[in-house]
Structure formats: structure tokens, C-alpha cells
Amino acid sequence: MLQFIAKRLAMLVATLLVASFAIYGALYLAPGSPIAALTGGRTLPPEVMAQIEARYHLNEPFLTRYWLWLTAAVHGDLGESIPLHESVNTLIAQRIGTTLQLVLFASILIVMFGVSLGIIGALGRGAVDTGVLFASTVSAALPAFAAAVILQFIFGVMLGWFPVLGTGEGFVDTVKHLTLPAIALAATSTALVTRVTRTAVREELDREHVQTAVSRGLPWSDVVRRHVLRNAAIPITTVVGITIASLIALSAVVETAFALNGLGAYLVQAAQNKDFAVVQGISLVLVVAFVITNVVVDIAYALLDPRVSLGSRAQ
């Protein structure tokens, strides 16, 4: 087990190294000189240019520059946004809270509704099951931005129950402001989790050990709780983990739709303004979060299911 974890962690470090190289190197793919890219094509006084050159070590070879950037990033310094004259760290710190709250809120919704609806669909046959299937099919086909505008129109404009733009102040107000965005972010994933849960529980119900348990006269609720759900938990945990990881990038869309001041929306804004230091910094943070979540899911999967052959590649 420890060997498996060590191996996954080594792969994590390798992946992050290559990914950080790609993120840093992307700047040099941009048409024009790196300094033009860094300044967004603005003409600045020569002494500022020289300062930027020194700050970004532009007279050093590429690999040295990458190494300096990476070591600074590992030490928690992501550089400086040139158009804003502000440290990328500060810019990220001001916004990461909103993104974390949003992703956390959406994850709670996914686990709560996805798993419970899946179980209800699997256990209750007939009309209940059809209803669950129908609801999950509709919400699976609803992209986050589409869900966002529909929710804004129904619950914001028509009913006026929730605010449609911006982040609130204080706990209750924040929850109120984040409710619609979290639902929009969770819609597709909830449907996916519902489907996987439903299939997993169905499959487990048809297993022989469940029939044995029933024929031995165990109460139905005990059979479901101890025999069915416990075994079905393995695929459910995996899919929940993977979908939550996918929310990290998707949050950019929802944050933009609801004008939330989060990391994703700011990344989009920085991409439009060609503020490269910010694009690199936020991309790095998002990739790290995404990769770490995936590794945690992998390890959790191995811990949950002793049958997973550790060390060998999963098919």
C-alpha cells in the first residue's frame, strides 16, 4: 500500500513538473517577443522595460528562467501582474475563497442529491425510477452556462428569490449569492453521479450474496445498508471524486455567468487582457488542485477496494 502511494506521489510530482513547464513555456509560443507578451504590447519607458527584463530574467537562457520561475512558485511567489502592478499572490488570495466556497457548495449538492437520487432510483422501481432517469437525463444535457442563464431567469428575474450577480457579505448572504451558481455548477455532475449510483446499487442488488442475505431472513434495511450500499460505495466514491475534480475548471464558466469574483472568472479576464503572469499563476493553481484531487481519488479507491491490484496499471 505504502509503495502504491509512493508511486502515485512520484507520478504526481512528475506530472506537475511537466505541466508547470507547459504552462511556463506557453508564454514563449505567443507571437512576438516575451517582453511584448508580458507587457501586453504596451510601450513602456526604457527603464521600466529594463526592470521587467531583470525581474523576469529575460537575458538568461530559457531553462534557467523556467527554473527560477518554478523555484519561486514552489516558495509561494507567483510573480507580478504587469498591467496591475500587483503581486499575483495577492490577486489570487483575494479570489480563491470564492472559488473554494463555490466548488465546496456544489460538491455538497452533488453528493447529497446525486447519491440519494441514485439510491432512490435503484430501490424504487417503476414510476419513481423513471422519474429519476428522466431528471438525470435532462440535467446531464444541461451545460453549466445554460443552467446558469435558466436559473437566473427563473429564480432571479421571475421569482426574485435569489440574487443573480455578485458575491455576498457575511455567511447567510454569501450562501444566498452562491446557491444558484452552485446548482448550475453541480447540474451535470449530479446527473452523472445519480446514474452511476443507480447502476452500482442495481448491480449489487442482483448479486448472490444479497440474495443469500435476504433468504437468511435479514431485515431489508440491514441488507441495503450493510451489504448493498457498502459495496456500491466503491464506484460511487470514484465518480464523485472525478466529477468534483472537473468542477475546478468549470467554475470559470459559472463564475463568469454570475459575475462572481473568483479565480476562474479572473483567469478568463486575464486571458482577455493578456496578463500572462496572472494566467500562468492561476493555471498553475488550478492544475495543482485538479491533479491532487485526482491522486486523492486514486488512493481512496485503492484503500476502499482491496481487490484493486496495486502497482499494476489499471485497464
Binding site: M11, A14, T15, L16, V18, A19, A22, I23, A26, L27, L29, A30, P31, S246, I248, A249, L250, A252, V253, L267, V268, A270, A271, Q272, K274, F276, V279, S283, L286, V287, F290, V291, N294
Partner: peptide
């Protein structure tokens, strides 16, 4: 391919928009 999995499609597209 494992490394490429580290980049969600939308993120890659946003970075591409910034660069190109």
C-alpha cells in the same frame, strides 16, 4: 497521456486564448 490528463479542456482553451 497521464500528463495531458492534468489539463482540463476548458483550462487549456483559456490558456490558448491568452497565448494565441
Amino acid at each position: 497521456l497521464d500528463v495531458l490528463f492534468a489539463f482540463p479542456g476548458i483550462l487549456l482553451a483559456v490558456v490558448a486564448a491568452a497565448v494565441f
